[in-house]
Amino acid sequence: MRTTSKKVRFDLLHTFGLDDLEENAYLALLRLPASDERDLSERLGRPAETVSVAVDHLVKEGFIRRAGNRLLAVQPDVAFGPGLLRRHGEMQRVQTFIATLMEEYRERSALRDAREAVEVVIGAAEVMARWQHLQRAAQKEVKSLAKEPIVISADNQAQRVAMASGIVYRSVYERTMIDVPGDPYQLAWSAANGELMRIATDVPTKLMIFDGRAAFVPLMSASVEPAALVITSGTLLGVLNWVFETVWAGAVPFPATENTLGPEEQRLLSLIIAGYTDRAISKQFGLSHRTVQRRVRQLTRLAGVETRLQLVWHAAKHDWL
């Protein structure tokens, strides 16, 4: 234990710029003052000339002092005080420098993270392959916003496989997509097989989000080849999740086929056709006036119309009752 203590102590003295001989000389004088340099030389077992050089350096640095021919060690707190102050100042400068480096590191890391979080996919085949891969990798839920034009094939085999394995699909379709004759987007199949579907008059962007952890944003233009962004982390991914949930909350539930309404919607529509006012309907349903108004608005939005009369005509045309 004593050897270890000495080793640690000597290593600490090294940090103040003393070499081995100077350390030994200072410690020897600290324990027992020497009558002169020859006495110190004999005690250390080193040549007098070498010890004389070490003594001169120790005197210059304030570790020992001369009292006539005698050599005396300066008490440690005084001897090491100036060095400690210098090192304290150096440490403060080092800390300031480290803080500057950390700021630069954080800035560069943020840029690097942003670059790594956004993948750009270019080319029709590449976009299709990346889209299919993300669907196959989904484990719980796929959320999507859809609007025309649809460039990726509507025959989405990956979705069929995913839904068959229990993956939940929640989708908001722009109103124009359900009005296209012949159901080219196979919405009836999707609804019949469990896709949770809603309709919105306007969908802000095309978007698919997989398990809330990766977003796929198609970038379509008539003048350039198909491309897409894949976002896997960061603030942008959170914003896209928020965009989907906001659009979803404001969209109208879409039934399995366009001409199918639930029992309550059918009853509500029947009363509207019969000429009942919202207040009269609220008494029939036992609901508040505002709730009835909201449900009537949902029906008109689902039909893509604005007035009750237009709703009646739409219901008759599409056999809603």
Rank of each mutant, 00 (worst) to 15 (best):
E174D: 06
R175L: 08
R175N: 05
T176E: 10
M177I: 11
M177P: 10
M177S: 06
M177T: 08
I178T: 14
D179S: 10
D179M: 10
D179Y: 08
D179W: 08
D179G: 03
P181L: 05
P181N: 05
P181M: 01
P181Q: 00
D183K: 06
P184E: 02
P184C: 03
Y185V: 05
Y185N: 08
Q186I: 02
Q186R: 13
L187E: 05
L187P: 07
L187S: 08
A188E: 10
A188M: 08
S190N: 06
S190H: 09
S190Q: 13
N193S: 02
G194Q: 06
E195Y: 05
E195C: 12
L196K: 12
M197V: 11
R198Q: 14
I199Q: 09
I199D: 12
A200M: 04
T201S: 12
T201K: 14
D202S: 11
D202L: 15
V203E: 03
P204F: 07
P204G: 09
K206T: 12
L207H: 07
M208Q: 14
I209E: 05
F210Q: 02
F210D: 04
G212I: 04
G212S: 08
G212F: 00
R213C: 07
R213N: 04
A214T: 15
A214P: 09
F216A: 05
F216G: 04
F216I: 07
V217P: 06
V217I: 14
P218C: 09
L219M: 10
L219D: 08
L219R: 13
M220T: 10
S221P: 01
S221K: 09
S221I: 04
S221H: 14
A222P: 07
A222S: 12
A222G: 15
S223K: 09
S223W: 09
V224R: 13
V224Q: 13
V224Y: 10
V224S: 12
P226A: 12
A227Q: 15
A227D: 13
A228R: 12
L229F: 15
L229T: 09
I231C: 03
I231A: 01
I231V: 14
I231R: 01
T232S: 15
T232M: 11
S233A: 13
S233F: 03
S233R: 10
G234S: 12
G234C: 10
G234H: 14
T235A: 11
L236E: 14
L236K: 11
L236H: 15
L236Q: 14
L237T: 03
L237G: 03
V239P: 02
V239D: 04
L240A: 01
L240I: 05
W242P: 00
V243N: 01
V243S: 00
E245Q: 01
E245P: 00
T246E: 01
T246C: 00
